[in-house]
Simulated assay, not measured.
Amino acid sequence: MNFVQPIRDLEKISEVRSFLASKNKRDELLFCFGIYTGLRISDILTVKVQDVLDKDHFYIVEQKTKKAKQRSKKYTVRKRIPLIKKLQRLINSYCEGMRGSDYLFKSRQGKNRPITRVRAYDILRVAAHHCDLNEIGTHTLRKTFGYLVYQNDKDVALLQDIFNHSTPYITLKYIGVNQDAIQEAYEALNNLRI
Rank of each mutant, 00 (worst) to 15 (best):
V47P: 06
D161F: 12
V149I: 15
R80H: 12
E11I: 10
Y121Q: 10
V77F: 01
G100P: 13
G137D: 04
K154C: 02
Y147G: 08
L45P: 12
D155W: 07
Y174E: 03
R89N: 11
L159K: 13
I81T: 05
P82M: 10
D56G: 12
N191H: 15
D102M: 09
D161V: 07
K111A: 14
G110K: 10
K23P: 03
S101A: 13
N164Y: 07
L87V: 11
F31M: 06
E184H: 08
I91Y: 12
N191W: 10
N92E: 11
L141Q: 07
R108V: 12
L124M: 12
L20G: 04
I182K: 14
R113E: 13
R40G: 02
G38Q: 01
G146W: 06
L148K: 11
H57E: 15
K48D: 09
V156F: 02
R108I: 10
I136L: 12
C32S: 14
K69M: 15
L10W: 04
Q5L: 12
L87A: 03
A185D: 08
F163V: 00
R71M: 04
L87R: 03
F33R: 04
Y186I: 14
T65D: 02
M1H: 12
R99S: 08
T65N: 07
R193L: 10
Y147H: 12
E135V: 02
E11W: 01
R89P: 00
R119W: 10
R193H: 10
G137M: 02
L39R: 03
I60L: 13
K69Y: 05
D161E: 15
I41Q: 05
N190E: 15
K74H: 03
V118P: 02
E28C: 08
E62T: 09
N164D: 10
A188R: 11
K12W: 00
V118Y: 07
Y147P: 10
I175D: 10
V149N: 08
L141G: 03
K154G: 07
H129N: 14
C95R: 03
K67S: 06
I194F: 14
V156G: 01
V16N: 04
Y75L: 00
I13G: 00
L159E: 08
L159H: 07
Q50F: 14
S14W: 11
Q179W: 04
A68T: 07
A21C: 06
K55G: 03
Q183H: 13
A188V: 00
P114T: 00
K79W: 01
N134T: 13
Q5A: 09
R113C: 11
F145R: 00
T76E: 04
F31C: 08
I81Y: 06
D51V: 11
N134L: 12
I136F: 05
G110T: 02
Q151D: 05
S72C: 00
R99E: 11
T46C: 07
V4N: 08
N112K: 01
H130E: 15
P82T: 08
I91P: 05
D161C: 03
I136S: 06
K106D: 05
V61T: 09
R193K: 15
R113Q: 10
N2V: 11
V47Y: 08
Q183T: 09
K74I: 02
H129F: 13
I194A: 07
K85G: 06
L29Y: 06
V52P: 06
N24C: 13
D43I: 04
L39H: 08
R89E: 13
Y186S: 11
K48H: 07
V16F: 09
R125M: 14
G100L: 10
L53D: 01
E28Y: 12
